[in-house]
Design a protein around this nucleic acid. Structure first.
Lengths: 251, 251
DNA sequence: TCTTGACCCTGACGTTGCGTCAGGCCGTAG
DNA sequence: CTACGGCCTGACGCAACGTCAGGGTCAAGA
């Protein structure tokens, strides 16, 4: 008889005791994350010792940034064990911290620019963010190259050259796409010319280094593993066209 | 005549060009954050060079974590200048980073406990988070004490003693509140006893060090500056009652 | 016994930044 | 003339509660 009334708290007491709000308790109740052990005749929620333990676990998992859905999965052992969840979460938080640090770094740089120049220099500010994002792109591209290859690339690729190359690619791609939509024959002279310019541009990037050429090829082949925001610099159609042109010239 | 058609992009072109989604453009449009420079007869949005610049600013401010509302305030110079916003945002991000680091630290500790013990030790995990939160409390309490005072406190306050003290306070407060609701006279012997125990507990914390006693007093007096989540360990009523009892005994 | 307060309950809307349909008009190539 | 790709305007959805609003419950004082 006295078992069931061990120690029952009403909503607000329980809330104060555990440091969450009454509204949050309602929320967890509706989500099925924490149902009170009992109810009074009038429908008042009654929480017991078991609920304290469970809520502490909830709060703990919330502290490390799990969503309520994930928390439920972990606590109900639905396909998620704690150690796996912890490892995943650690990685996610690490990534978040990286981004935070980049943002803080950007702010600090912008502040230095502003205090030295006095005026809110939007161009510089925008540039700072752009550079940081570029670095991010490079960070994941890096894993396709060896140390030495990166070394070599960084020596050759000055900002001006990169800009020039970017421009050349844009022009060439436009012409290639025009040729495709005009239905030009890949074996025609015009197509051969485009293919030659294409090869020259690739060559200017690889610098004739076959290792770099191979890495570049790997990078493209591995499209399935590209990050979500990455986009191909040119369409598959363009690539196909160029390949046909090369095949035609080889005959 | 050619002025107005300098270079106009349709929604999806503009989106690709600037790296945001068309839907985001619609959103910014509705919020009044970025209205397209023009529309075609059919109602199609048309973006120009001015819009590119503005959108870049928006993206930049988003990168450092400003909300769209804040961005609008900054860009429209409604009461917010850029440097102020940057400073504030830097502080906010710093705070976020602190919390992220605590969460990461907690996960790492929990993982170490789990790999050494093998089992998901919830008690230990919950304890880890509790300790971190306690440290947070102490962090802001710290500013009321000098270096030496903190030194002395840390030497005397072992975890067991703290737990004992916490318990003693809980018991005493319960008795004091009972006495208040019973309407006990503050000059009565019972009230005197309570006041004496109160003083003893305070004494056990200050260790007879008048500097620490003063700092403690300052800490309490400065309630207006306590962080939002901090709560008084006892009610004003209890304090008032004890003060009356002390006053009565002084006569 | 009636009346306060102090609590409790259940909806239901608001917040933030878009993603994701759904239903329907526009414009161009075949 | 039709089909297909773009564009448009709603409108709902998500996460985790905060914040009313409207309305019972319960113990204590008049």
């Amino acid at each position: 008889m006295s078992k069931t009334e061990k120690m029952l708290y009403q909503a607000s007491e329980f809330a104060k005791l555990t440091g969450v709000t009454v509204r949050a308790l309602h929320h967890y109740d509706r989500l099925g994350l924490l149902k009170p052990s009992g109810r009074t005749g009038a429908g008042y929620r009654l929480y017991g010792a078991r609920d304290v333990a469970r809520l502490q676990q909830i709060v703990t998992l919330k502290f490390i940034g799990l969503s309520l859905k994930q928390i439920r999965a972990v606590l109900d052992r639905e396909s998620f064990d704690l150690s796996t969840a912890l490892r995943l979460q650690r990685e996610i938080l690490g990534e978040k911290r990286r981004r935070l640090e980049m943002a803080i770094g950007a702010i600090e740089k912008a502040e230095r620019v502003m205090t030295s120049s006095g005026e809110p220099d939007w161009k510089a500010f925008v540039k700072i963010i752009e550079v940081i994002n570029m670095q991010n792109e490079w960070d994941w591209v890096k894993k396709y190259y060896t140390e030495e290859q990166l070394q070599e690339l960084s020596q050759r690729a000055t900002p001006e050259l990169l800009e020039q190359a970017q421009h050349d690619w844009a022009v060439l791609l436009k012409e290639v796409n025009a040729a495709i939509s005009e239905g030009i024959d890949p074996s025609s002279e015009r197509a051969q010319g485009l293919a030659a310019r294409w090869s020259a541009l690739v060559e200017s990037f690889t610098g004739g280094n076959p290792g770099i050429a191979q890495s570049l090829s790997n990078l493209y082949t591995d499209q399935a593993n590209w990050p979500a925001h990455a986009q191909k610099p040119f369409s598959d159609d363009a690539m196909t066209f160029i390949n046909k042109a090369r095949a035609a010239s080889a005959k």
